[in-house]
Structures are given as structure tokens and as C-alpha cells.
Amino acid sequence: MTTLQLEPTRAWIVRFAAYVEAEVDNLTELDRQVGDGDFGLNLRSAVRSALAEIDAHPPTRPGEVFTRVSDAFLGTGGTSGPLLGLWFGRIADVRGAAVSVTDLAAAIDTATQSVRRLGKADVGHKTMVDAMVPATEALLAGAARSDDLLPALAAARDAAEQGAESTRDLVARRGRASYVGDHARGVVDPGARAIAMFFASAPTAGGEA
């Protein structure tokens, strides 16, 4: 699979939404321990809204799918909504009906750098950036090696999972979790977990395209 086209992109978001539905209680519990407990519900609200918009206004190319997701997050409450809205909005800048791994990696890199700047967060701060950055780096490295999209997305999936898990032992330095200090240690950051879930839903998970 050398390019990301419309239907696999739509399926990616459908799988992500289903994953969120299945994990909403766990995400809420994680956020209850490190924040105000609304992350799971806000994430579910956003993905439901995204799917509704995709159905109501069918996209014609991959970038438009990500635009629907971006708009949904920008319209959702909580501190993570604007950051995820920005992230998906930058990914939505990909052009054309068939997106190469190079173009997708570049868009996700731009998206991740935008979130880092806006949130003033970096790896080690116990935020969604801890999953975004390694996933982005893995995707860029995969794009440099080959024009095959699937291995690059698989590497990004694994890196995002490892990045999310790495937040378990961190003390938060940004976001709401930074207010609870050592009480956040031992808890995976819910934003990082959501990013890992997004990449786990990509067209490599379970061999799906």
C-alpha cells in the first residue's frame, strides 16, 4: 500500500471511534486520577461528532476526513479539544486523493510541532506529546526508508504505544496533571493513550487497509 486514499482513511477514523467507545471508561478513570475526569467523555463526544459529519457531508479525499475530525475536536470542551483539533487540522493539510507516506509523515510532523508549540510541552512532560513525538519520528523514518505506507504506520503505532506507556512513571510538567504532582506517577497520561489508540487504528492494525 503506497498511498492513503479516501476509504482507508475513513475506515481508520471509524476504527478509532470504535476504540474510543470501548475504552471511554478507562480513559475517564485515567483522567480522574490526573485531571478533572472529563477526557473520556469529551473524546467520545468528539469522535461521535466526527462520524456524524463524515456521514452528513461525505469527504472526497483523505484530507477532508481529517478536517471533519479536527472540526469535531475544536467544537468539544476540555483542555485537550483545541490541541487535538489543531493536530488533526494540520494533518488535514495533506493534498490530493492519494497521500504518499512522505506527505502523510510531513503533515503529522507539522501537526505535532504545532501542538508542542501551543502546549509548550515536550517529551517527558507527561502529555499527549509523549506519544505524538515518537510516532512522528517513526513515521518519518519509515518514509525515508520506503514508499510503502503500511510498515511506516506500523512503526508509528508501536512507537506511540511505547510513548504512551512511558508516561506511567513520569511526574507531569504540563497540563492539568501537573497540578497533582506525584499523585500522577503510576498513571498513563490519557491524552498520550488516545494518540496511541489513534495510531493503533491505522491501516496496519490487524492487517486492515
Rank of each mutant, 00 (worst) to 15 (best):
T2W: 09
T2D: 14
L6N: 07
P8Y: 08
A11Y: 04
W12V: 05
F16H: 06
F16I: 01
A17D: 03
A17N: 04
A18K: 12
A22K: 14
E23R: 14
E29R: 12
V34T: 09
G37T: 06
N42P: 00
N42W: 05
R44I: 04
S45L: 13
S45P: 00
V47W: 00
A50Y: 03
A50R: 00
A50S: 13
A52Y: 08
A52F: 09
E53F: 08
E53T: 15
E53K: 13
I54C: 08
A56K: 10
P58R: 13
T60R: 14
T60Y: 07
P62M: 08
R68T: 11
R68A: 15
R68M: 12
V69C: 10
V69I: 13
V69H: 03
T76E: 06
G77K: 11
G78F: 09
G78K: 01
T79L: 15
G81H: 05
P82N: 04
L86Q: 06
L86E: 05
I91V: 15
A92F: 06
A92M: 09
D93V: 13
G96F: 13
A97L: 12
A98W: 11
V101K: 01
V101G: 03
V101S: 06
I108H: 00
I108K: 00
D109K: 08
T112N: 01
Q113R: 14
V115Q: 00
V115F: 03
R117D: 12
L118H: 10
G119D: 02
V123G: 01
E137F: 06
A138L: 10
L139P: 00
L139Q: 03
A143K: 02
A144W: 07
A152N: 07
L153S: 06
A155V: 11
A156M: 10
A159C: 12
Q162W: 02
G163I: 09
A164Q: 01
T167E: 03
R168Y: 03
L170D: 00
R176S: 03
A177P: 05
Y179K: 12
D182E: 15
G186S: 11
G191V: 05
G191L: 06
G191C: 08
A192W: 03
R193M: 14
F198M: 14
F198H: 02
P203A: 12
A205I: 06
G206C: 11
G207E: 09
E208I: 10
A209E: 14
